[in-house]
């Protein structure tokens, strides 16, 4: 599968949004270009653009058709997308504490069995990873991370669960993720973090930004319980390693 074409495709998403598609597959180069275009638009706003939504492979650009039309905006976006990918001006790196297995990660044992290894080894592999927030979507704060090592790739569950806990850390396909709110999921649940990636009335309301880097550290259930109480009070409990 071809990774990234030089020119993104500019696809209409109705009369008030354009999908700037860099790739049709999950690929890191494409995601870097998505995030770069997103940064460019934040730095040099185009009049009429109201909101951008980066995803793995495309940037959704919402705009007001009263201020700019599809043709004019497409031209501007095509030109910006061809600029060399600039380095991120800031690279934030977070460490998120996770309690793995047991009631907090009910699929850990099964994942270990499927991959013919031990739960401890799965935890070691997952905490060894250096992940990037490729996109946030679906529900508030649901952060999709790229960089899952290949030995942990596995297809999603046949039957998605209708309700999985807030703070769930899971793997699905070639991705891992941090789920903020309780909700449905078809991924394999490895653990749980006390970190709220979305919390109303906390500053900041949203903790992670697309493009941030994330690592995980293993904590015990007692620590999780303490952190969970602190997080409930509005503490961030994630560690900002660099910014």
């Amino acid at each position: 599968m071809a990774a990234t074409s030089a020119l993104p495709r500019l696809l209409p998403s109705g009369d008030s949004a354009i999908t700037v598609e860099f790739s049709r597959t999950i690929d890191d180069t494409a995601n870097q270009r998505v995030l770069a275009l997103d940064r460019t638009l934040a730095r040099e706003p185009i009049a009429g653009v109201t909101e951008t939504v980066p995803t793995y492979r495309s940037l959704l650009v919402h705009y007001d058709p009263m201020q700019i039309d599809f043709e004019a905006l497409s031209e501007k976006l095509a030109a910006l997308a061809q600029l060399p990918v600039p380095a991120a001006t800031k690279t934030r790196r977070w460490r998120l504490p996770v309690v793995y297995g047991g009631e907090h990660g009910i699929d850990l044992e099964d994942v270990a069995k499927t991959l013919k290894t031990t739960p401890d080894d799965i935890v070691a592999r997952h905490t060894a990873g250096d992940y990037r927030v490729a996109m946030i979507g679906f529900t508030p704060g649901w952060s999709y991370l790229s960089g899952l090592q290949e030995s942990l790739h596995m297809s999603r569950r046949q039957n998605p669960r209708l309700l999985t806990p807030a703070g769930t850390i899971s793997i699905g396909g070639i991705q891992t993720g941090v789920q903020c709110l309780a909700g449905p999921s078809g991924w394999h649940l490895l653990g749980q973090t006390a970190v709220r990636t979305y919390q109303l009335h906390r500053d900041p309301t949203f903790l992670l930004e697309p493009g941030d880097y994330v690592t995980f550290s293993s904590v015990d259930a007692k620590t999780f319980a303490e952190q969970d109480r602190a997080a409930e009070r509005g503490e961030i409990v994630a560690e900002l390693i660099s910014s």
Binding site: S13, G14, S16, A17, T19, E21, S23, R24, T25, I26, V53, T55, Y56, R57, S58, L59, L60, H62, M135, G137, F138, Y144
Partner: peptide, 11 residues
């Protein structure tokens, strides 16, 4: 299955 991308009202 496509790789998730952004949605709009009316998608």
């Amino acid at each position: 299955n496509i790789v998730s991308d952004g949605t709009v009202g009316g998608s």
